[in-house]
Design a protein around this nucleic acid. Structure first.
Lengths: 232, 232
DNA sequence: TTGATGCTTCGGCTATCATCGAAGCATGAA
DNA sequence: TTCATGCTTCGATGATAGCCGAAGCATCAA
């Protein structure tokens, strides 16, 4: 007996246009919120919720809860590989797809996420802190090391005492919207962003509602000196 | 704008259980007839016809007409690769599938296809003829070489004059049912099969309706001496 | 020719499933 | 607390598509 669903089961998940749009939106590795995926697929949040539950049950995507948002990402590279394969088959039979263009590059580079720095530079900063053992990260848990405390005091005039808060962690990994990686949240993330502003290294964009963060020329140099990865 | 179907289009093709069963049946590379695929999927020929048309339009399978049969095979290895990927994703989420067991081994080994030899030995014979340049093959077109004519006369007492027929080609590639490869049809294929019978190398199985061809012990040796590939 | 087999097309039935409105939770802010 | 936001569940609707019976071609055999 042919038995159960097997490949038809997982293929039918990808077979729905709305779900396929969501999955392709996740193809670049970024994790997106449920609402963003709904908009990406052109459907209402209710419908998207139903689709996301199915995709998750099918093992194609994994959720990560973040405040009142719910981020979804592809389970792993195997899923992305199969999607690429399907795209390849579709492309050669003439079923091309118009790729949704890249978003605002400034938004990708640096922006405000709640009250801390996100985007390319935000991810780069946490990477740098981790590599130099100024913080220790286990999944979403981030801990400031003694070496890290000294670093903050010396270079940014941030004392560890300032960071304690009754209901908010000092450090926290926050999933980045434009990158697939984490950046630094928590009271430390907020304090650092505030310090960057005070030092006139960066400022939020003047446009109302914009989340873009503009770095000054000297600010960018200072930032790169502290957290640079040598690429810039 | 999200534009058209893209991966959802091709994924939905695989997403239907009946079509998925057909495709998995084709995964081993063999080409199957429409009716066989219908049986494999557990549906009526009409329904299967509709599915096969869609799969063909989607570029997943390719037809090869053969008499009143219509053989289908996967378009290429890319398709098989994507199917394997999907199977992998399905397997790890617990959606295993019971593989359909192998068919009658005797039928696979040697059988009558219309009036010529098919099965493992039939494919092996054409392979041998091709390797030794006794025939030249381009796709389904097969041509007997001068060297081939001498070979036939010497070893099987088949003269080229016997083979001409007003409406039937001397040589023709015929798609094998148990192998994915071609075997030799045409008046030459028929003449060779007839000669094997006359020489008492082989005989059709006594069971009525059976297409199995039984080789005698000496017949198998003689056959292997002429067309062997060294494996037996 | 007549009959048989393999496959396709047509028409209608049915069931599945995507979709959205409305309401219900959960989290965070004031 | 009260309000707002993000997401989910429930219920009903509507359209897509798989399915089969019947009939129509095409191929092969006698």
């Amino acid at each position: 007996m042919k038995s159960g669903p097997d490949i038809a089961m997982v293929a039918s998940l990808v077979g729905d246009p709305a779900r396929a749009n969501m999955l392709t939106a996740l193809m670049n590795g970024r994790a997106l919120t449920a609402s963003e995926l709904a908009q990406e697929a052109g459907i209402t949040p209710q419908t998207a919720s139903s689709h996301l539950a199915k995709l998750e049950a099918g093992g194609l995507i994994e959720p990560e809860k973040q405040g009142r948002h719910r981020y979804y990402r592809l389970t792993d590279d195997d899923v992305a590989g199969v999607l690429e394969g399907l795209a390849g088959l579709a492309a050669r039979t003439g079923h091309m797809r118009v790729r949704t263009g890249p978003k605002d590059p400034a938004l990708r580079r640096a922006r405000i996420c709640y009250d801390h720095l996100a985007g390319d530079l935000g991810v780069q900063m946490l990477d740098s802190l981790r590599e130099r053992h100024l913080v220790r990260q286990k999944k979403q848990e981030i801990e400031l090391t003694a070496e890290g405390e000294r670093f903050l005091t010396k270079h940014l005039q941030i004392s560890p005492d300032m960071l304690s808060h009754p209901r908010r962690p000092v450090c926290k990994a926050c999933l980045d919207w434009s990158e697939r990686r984490h950046h630094l949240a928590g009271t430390l993330g907020a304090a650092m962003m505030q310090r960057f502003t005070e030092l006139k290294w960066a400022a939020r964009d003047a446009t109302p509602g914009s989340r873009v963060v503009n770095f000054t020329r000297t600010g960018e140099k200072q930032f790169a000196a502290l957290f640079g990865n040598g690429k810039d």
